[in-house]
Design a protein around this nucleic acid. Structure first.
Lengths: 238, 238
DNA sequence: CGTCAGCTTGATTACTTTCAATTGTTGTGG
DNA sequence: CCACAACAATTGAAAGTAATCAAGCTGACG
């Protein structure tokens, strides 16, 4: 089944319909070159695309679906460090430093990715100064977010972090048609991993927010009833 | 006084004696070009080189001294996100993204820096693909550290973070001749900012470590009596 | 219908912060 | 040189927050 899907779903890079795609600044020829040796993969929800510590063979460009990037801490506790959605690339950082992957990438729903080999990617980077610049900007942005995240975890309460996490989920997954329901189903445990807390605390906090009519639930999904309150409660001080 | 010192202390880039310097991969001609328009500055201990939120005019290359990079959190609580020492560059990230500086850079002792303007730097980056690669690697490393730091803050106890901080100080500042005394004087408050805790907790933890003969004090400086124990207590799980 | 995993809840414990008071240090002007 | 002000460091006590532990509960699924 996987193989069929692969061939059907993902077009060549020069015909990729993802707008706002990381590689979109490349010329058609370059995109074709990118396509030549790329391999396409399908991952079911929950499957790992690569593991922290694995040696890096290439980078993955997310064609569709969402990916979470997480690191393992003490006693196996997971911390989600970033998300990636269609058009984003993951696993590229390890390529430059000759390091293993620094995080585990997991499919959050059905995910189609293209894998571009290390050699091909580095070749393209070398030939395209503008492309390097794009990479630098990407890294800068990720670094800025990581540092902000650091500050949040260091100084905010669980409640604030949970609200902040809701806002993160909003930017990554967006809303369903009602513009209120977050378009993602997360386990409480995953919610805890995002907010850097325990499942129990995450639950208690979400329930309290529900009591206060700030959020509501629809099955496993979360409805943001009072977006303003979420923002306030997230304690955005800048 | 500042002006005299400036002219005496810092040579042109092509004659810079800092080994392991960020710009050292440039050719002599390029270094000369770098020098042409650079301005040199002296900052006394405690002075700010730039502030978080200021618009970015250029990057700073640390010629001598140590610099701390910190961000302000809720209610003015400071969090140290990184250090820079001679040969390192700071403030470069904002240049690529047309953003203000994302952190405040403060001189930790007497610091001499060269300021390279935004335009000149971007020009050099454009002309040197290899240089971009170096930047990418720098950013990758910083990002890796930031993510590790995030995990530490999220999952470790104060004691572990304090021990970890001691190890960070070791790598940045090194030891005095006795190979035991950390070559840096920090206030308790700064120590707290590094370990992401309060001054009170930092003090209590350091005193407990002293009781346990793991560290000792020599004036304001810290002596690592039992380095192995510090490493163990830092809870390095990877 | 039983089972298993994830969710929820309550009670307890541990850790850390906060607040307040005290001590120590440093620099300054008389 | 001393007194004093200002600030940093320390200490103790109290409060608060969140993690942990230990049950029950629920719902999906064979």
């Amino acid at each position: 089944v996987g193989y069929e899907k692969k061939n059907i779903v993902i077009p060549d890079c020069d015909k990729c319909t993802n707008t706002d795609q990381f590689f979109c600044s490349l010329s058609v020829d370059e995109k074709k070159k990118l396509s030549e040796r790329k391999s396409q993969n399908f991952f079911k929800k929950g499957q790992a695309i690569f593991y922290e510590g694995n040696s890096a063979v290439g980078l993955y460009c997310v064609h569709s679906g969402k990916v979470k990037l997480s690191k393992l801490g003490r006693e196996g506790k997971e911390q989600i460090v970033r998300f990636a959605k269609s058009g984003d690339i993951v696993g590229y950082r390890a390529l430059f430093c000759n390091e293993p992957y620094q995080a585990t990438a997991t499919a959050m729903d059905d995910v189609y990715v293209c894998m571009i080999s290390r050699e091909r990617f580095l070749q393209i980077v070398e030939e395209n100064p503008k492309f390097s610049l794009k990479l630098i900007q990407l890294l800068s942005g990720d670094l800025r977010m990581a540092e902000k995240h650091l500050l949040d975890v260091a100084q905010k309460t669980v409640r604030e972090r949970v609200c902040e996490s809701l806002l993160v989920l909003e930017t990554i997954f967006g809303y369903e048609e009602d513009k209120k329901t977050l378009n993602v189903s997360l386990s409480r445990s995953e919610m805890a991993d995002i907010a850097a807390t325990t499942p129990e605390s995450a639950i208690r906090t979400l329930l309290k927010l529900k009591e206060e009519k700030i959020i509501a639930f629809s099955g496993k999904k979360i409805i943001i009833s009072n977006r303003k309150a979420v923002i306030t409660e997230a304690g955005v001080y800048d």
